[in-house]
Design a protein around this nucleic acid. Structure first.
Length: 405
DNA sequence: ATGTCC
């Protein structure tokens, strides 16, 4: 099977037996030493029982990312600030052959300026308070977040015919709960309720965090839909949801709490997007029954190879060199007016998404359904004159709106 | 990751 199960029990680790680590990657996926050290530390967290590590594994601020952890305590620190972050895939009622890339690029630039009809009603329809950070809806954010226009590059044999239309355009949206999740995390950090101890299941702090988490998950899912609707509107099209998969959440299970730390939630039979980078293919995969071995999780993307800071030295300083990073091998382009962000998010900062998918397949967790090529990747648009962000979000009276919830 | 630290 190739699944290496390693049970560590060092005498200095205290009374608790470290969690069993199940590794779902091969030696073809590069994992650096610092990440393995973090993984080992996570296995020694309070109440940690089982850990699943995936091929996109890379270091994070509060432990390795690309991991699912089953524990009998709740660890808000592992989920961090972007509670509910995930990937959603939408199909557009627009065929690839009708795409005019120049026109589409100009239109997609206006993505975050598109009107949102009634944010309050959308929130209420999602079972959320109508005034829960409505002005943040439809915003992508920074870091690895994006909204990407894609086309089917390849459909894999025997894979679920009729699920995807090979002639259609798609939107893959990667975003989360923005300032909402950040405010929840900050609140628990300040109160000393997010630390290495973790929270006891059923305790008051556990219940408070879990309720806010559930709101963030709903809000983030709605946000991805609003981003897709803004993009569709900019492109004069309509969109239909195909898959909505969070990778920064907890799931309460009979045997404990599964923490998805940058690991996509994958129930058997689910379609799951595995994102590439600006210049590599993304994949749509179908989770197999065997995902129960990996705690109902798989990779959510390629995963970083180089950290953000070190990327600044790896990309050429010339304008022509920089502009190469806004192009991809399929004639696609990236919209990213923020130079530092463009460098940090260059394709070369990421692992090979094809290898990530190959590793997941080698461990029988998934069947590949389709490879998707990137045509337009919206990251950030700025006003050419003022250098300001091109956002249509109302910032009036923003303070305290969602902080006390 | 962060209506991004003033």
């Amino acid at each position: 099977m190739g699944i290496l199960i390693e049970s560590l029990c060092s005498p200095e680790a205290g009374t608790q037996v470290p969690a069993i680590i199940r590794r779902f990657y091969t030696d073809k996926s590069w994992v650096e030493g610092e990440t393995l050290r973090q993984l080992d530390q996570m296995a020694r967290l309070n109440g940690a029982m089982t850990l699943a590590a995936f091929p996109d594994l890379h270091p994070g601020k509060y432990g390795a990312t690309g991991v699912a952890l089953l524990a009998n305590r709740l660890h808000p620190l592992l989920i961090g600030n972007d509670i509910g972050c995930g990937m959603s895939l939408f199909m557009l009622d627009l065929p690839v052959r009708k795409l005019r890339i120049d026109k589409a690029e100009l239109r997609l630039r206006e993505l975050e300026m598109q009107e949102i009809s009634d944010a309050g009603a959308m929130l209420a329809a999602s079972g959320l308070p109508h005034d829960l950070f409505p002005e943040g809806l439809g915003t992508i954010g920074g870091g690895n977040h994006f909204c990407e226009l894609q086309a089917v590059d390849e459909m894999f044999a025997g894979s679920s015919e009729g699920v995807l239309d090979s002639q259609a355009l798609y939107l893959l949206v990667h975003s989360g709960s923005r300032g909402l999740g950040a405010s929840v995390f900050a609140e628990f950090l300040v109160a000393g309720e997010a630390n290495n101890e973790g929270l006891e299941i059923g305790s008051p702090a556990y219940t408070r965090w879990k309720n806010k988490h559930d709101q963030c998950v709903k809000w983030a899912s709605l946000n991805r839909r609003m981003i897709a609707e803004r993009a569709a509107k900019a492109l004069h099209a309509d969109c239909t949801l195909i898959a909505d998969v969070p990778h920064n959440v907890v799931r309460v299970q009979p045997d404990g709490i599964v923490h998805h730390k940058g690991a996509a939630v994958a129930n058997a039979g689910d379609l799951v997007p595995v994102a590439g980078s600006r210049a590599s293919l993304s994949y749509i995969v179908r989770a197999r029954d065997e995902v129960q071995q990996s705690l109902g999780a798989i990779s959510h993307g390629a995963g970083r190879k180089y950290d953000r800071a070190s990327m600044q030295g790896r990309i050429g300083k010339l304008r022509s060199q920089r502009e190469q990073h806004l192009r991809n091998p399929w004639g696609g382009r990236a919209i990213c007016d923020d130079r530092a962000l463009m460098v940090e998010e260059a394709a070369s900062a990421y692992k090979d998404s094809a290898q990530v998918v190959a590793d997941l397949e080698a461990h029988h967790l998934i069947d590949p359904v389709a490879a998707m090529r990137p045509l337009l990747t919206y990251k950030k648009a700025m006003d050419q004159k003022t250098g300001g962000s091109l956002k249509n979000d109302d910032k009036r009276g923003r303070k305290g709106h969602y902080e006390k919830r």
